[in-house]
Design a binder for these strands. Structure first.
Lengths: 229, 229
DNA sequence: ATTACTTAGTGTAAAACATACACGCTATAT
DNA sequence: ATATAGCGTGTATGTTTTACACTAAGTAAT
């Protein structure tokens, strides 16, 4: 039975563009490779898909190994399959982006086997990347630029409780343009998916802003209608 | 060198959701399988990716073998990789949608090896499909629904010269809702990407409509601005 | 030639939405 | 007390979207 499938010297991997937002900057996680090919180069975190793993499971595993976190927001966005993208053989790579709350504690586990360590790097200042990872990163960034206009993904980059200014910053840094404060607030609040927590920021050195949280229940009720920026 | 990549009993394939528009209906191409597994079932056209083929090349090849046509508009949209999606082994499938002008001549080549014949089927009346092809189809349809709102893909389904009513029909059948004629025309013409050919339809049994064509040059100049429906 | 039929093609008013724009308020730090 | 820095707010204008119905033109049948 199994014999009827052609067998090539080929396999598939997952690569992840892991976005985080910190101090007003959009960052991604990069690893420093510890193995050939591209030893000592910077690369996107990724790995070969296990024999008994679905693609989503594999991506989750990679993120867990990398950050210790589960339940990270994650989405498959494109598959890269040029014949020579990997110098050691035919490796088709399924790319995911992930968005996560980078809450001060930038504690990343020391990496196993193939990588020395992972670091957050500002997307505006990336080093040269291994394989076709530059291309993968660019496509991932493009995808979240589109998606943030219609889907409530910005919240994935923020802590549970956030201020409107922080939210606006996320939009600005991803869309790469300044937005008008009053218009942004008016529109964002008009969707009715933010819950005013009647609570102020703590520990800021000037006037504290009101905290909000994203209200998933209310968002679910919008079903059909689209948020748009 | 090559030995450092883990080898599983796995491979990858392409599956294509080929959309056509004819007589006011949105159709897709299905093949009747002539091989196990799922012998005699309906399925999306697809095939194993060749050892020296990129994914796009492989998809083009499948479409060429199926329709005899090259230069079909085509786009990768998702990769399906559940462990058990293929009963004979681990087959990850990269899915493409294609849009083509179904101009009366529904002449499809008789299929080689794995399929008896291909047929156009209305998307509103599809048979049960092999593998996870129902899921693939649904995701493909969803994608073109989104994409037609922002990208000029409707033209790919129409002949070079078309009437505004035909164009509106494409939108209506893909978005699955009626649109207002006057508003549709106003908006569509306002983008300035349709060239009035100052020429009327031939051989219709009532008042002939003006023919237009999509003007790629002008569309290219819009770069940045977005068409939206 | 007349008539019946079918689709083409057209405008406007009201509502909703997007944009542009600037200053007083408040909590903190000194 | 005062300086500071970010918070929070409203309006007027322009643009876009929506809802809505009839006449014009060409063909076919008689």
């Amino acid at each position: 039975m199994k014999e009827s499938l052609p067998k090539f010297d080929s396999t598939f991997s997952i690569d992840c563009v892991v976005f985080g937002f910190d101090e007003g900057e959009l960052k991604i996680l990069l690893i420093e490779r510890n193995e050939e090919p591209f030893k000592d180069w910077w690369a996107l975190p990724g790995n070969i898909v296990g024999e008994r793993e679905s693609l989503d499971q594999s991506a989750s595993r990679i993120l867990r190994e990398l950050t210790g976190l589960t339940n990270i927001y994650m989405e498959q966005f494109y598959t890269f399959g040029d014949v020579n993208r990997h110098p050691q053989g035919r490796v088709v790579s399924i790319a995911y982006y992930a968005l996560l709350r980078l809450g001060g504690e930038k504690s990343l586990k020391p990496m196993s086997n193939y990588a020395k360590q992972a670091y957050w790097r500002n997307v505006k200042d990336l080093p040269k990347l291994a394989f076709d990872h530059q291309q993968i990163f660019e496509k991932g960034l493009e995808k979240i630029k589109r998606r943030i206009k219609h889907q409530p993904i910005a919240f994935e980059l923020l802590p549970e409780k956030f201020t409107l200014t922080q939210l606006q910053n996320v939009y600005e840094v991803i869309l790469n343009k300044k937005l008008d404060k009053r218009n942004f607030r008016k529109k964002m609040l008009s969707f009715g998916v933010l819950k005013d927590l009647e609570e102020k920021q703590q520990g800021v050195s000037f006037r504290a802003a009101t905290l909000y949280k994203f209200d998933k229940r209310k968002y679910a009720k919008l079903f059909g209608k689209e948020i748009s920026f």
